[in-house]
Simulated assay, not measured.
Amino acid sequence: MRAEDVRQRLTTPLTGPAYAPTVPRFTDREYLNVVYRTDPDALRAVVPEPLRIGEPLVRFEVMKMGDVTGYGPYTEAGQAIPVSLEGEHGEYLHAMYLDNFPATASGREVSAYPKVLGSPSLTVDSGALVGTLDHGSLRVATATMGYKHHELDRREARAQITVPTFMLKTVPGYDGLPRVQELVRTRITDVTVKEAWTGPARLQLFAHVLAPLADLPVLEVVSASHIVTDLTLNGVEPVHDYLKGAGS
């Protein structure tokens, strides 16, 4: 294979990439969102500068992907933290766990999503929408919400899921030092909200050393939503380079 051919292949392995070379389109992406108040000191310990924290809030999410081009159906769960950067309000993606390796590899390599493998689920059980996350055989999160108790304004639902999203991209070098370390930004713009609901909710987080969601403890549930959408994820853009000027 010629060097120029190698340069045109941006995935690993070289001849059998882990994910499809396509921009994924999500059809019937179903969200369970539970926003809760947490310990502000715990937030400050995990949110990188130059992002700023306002209220000490966290959004626990479970997303059931009905169909995704290139990946097929899968489920994902994680935590997002409301932040601001230079006056722009958004969310910092703190943790993401999913049951699809191609989507995990693509999210980490092509973008900066903090994805690792886990076993999330989103089901309806006896009048409750139930989102769970397991790591191995152990439960690390359980969220419950009254199933379709009250309609949520679709404009509000759209606003919830289209805020700017910030992520930390780190690529280690062969010497053990970071080769790339950037704060990046993206935003969902191509979205259609099909259903939107709200209702009472509860959230339990269980301590696990390899899935430390409980390090951001639940002090009070603030709000919850259940949203069904079609959407396409945008690419990312760097907004801060941690290595620029380092060592100078």
Rank of each mutant, 00 (worst) to 15 (best):
H94D: 07
P56R: 04
S111T: 14
T69H: 04
P56W: 03
T75H: 02
L57T: 03
T232I: 09
P102D: 08
A3Q: 11
L43A: 00
R37T: 05
A95I: 09
Y97K: 05
G146E: 14
E91T: 12
T142W: 08
H135E: 13
G16V: 15
W197I: 00
L168N: 11
G70C: 09
V140D: 01
Q204D: 15
D230G: 03
V124I: 12
A157W: 00
Y71A: 15
V35G: 00
H240S: 08
H89R: 14
D67E: 13
G16W: 15
N100K: 09
A214H: 08
V124D: 07
V228K: 05
F166K: 05
E88G: 07
V130A: 00
A201D: 00
G199S: 03
E76H: 02
G173T: 07
G54K: 04
L231P: 08
G131T: 06
Y31C: 00
A18S: 12
V46R: 01
H226S: 07
M145E: 05
V130C: 00
V47M: 01
V83Q: 01
D39W: 06
A80F: 05
L122D: 04
A45M: 04
P82Q: 07
A196R: 04
Y31S: 00
A207I: 10
R139T: 11
F26W: 10
I227Y: 00
P56L: 01
P102W: 09
N100C: 12
H89P: 03
I161P: 03
Y74S: 04
A3M: 12
A95N: 10
G107N: 07
T198M: 07
K169D: 10
G90C: 07
P200G: 15
R202V: 12
R37M: 06
G70I: 13
H208A: 05
D215I: 04
A207S: 13
V163P: 01
R187K: 14
F60T: 03
L122H: 03
G54D: 08
D67Y: 12
K194C: 03
T123R: 13
D153R: 04
V116G: 10
Q160K: 08
E151R: 14
V222Y: 02
Y71F: 15
L129T: 11
T170N: 11
I161G: 01
D67M: 12
T186P: 04
M167W: 12
P102M: 09
G245L: 05
D215Q: 11
L10P: 05
S84M: 03
P212Q: 04
T198P: 02
V222D: 01
H150I: 12
T189G: 09
F60W: 11
A196H: 05
D28I: 10
T12I: 15
A105E: 14
A112R: 04
A3N: 11
V35Q: 06
S126T: 14
D175K: 06
P40D: 02
V68H: 02
E4R: 13
E91N: 11
D28A: 14
P178I: 06
Y74K: 02
D134P: 03
A80R: 07
T11M: 13
V209F: 10
T198L: 06
T104N: 13
Y147F: 09
R29C: 12
E151H: 10
F60G: 02
D215N: 12
P50F: 10
A207T: 14
G70D: 09
H208Y: 06
G127L: 03
A103V: 06
V180Q: 06
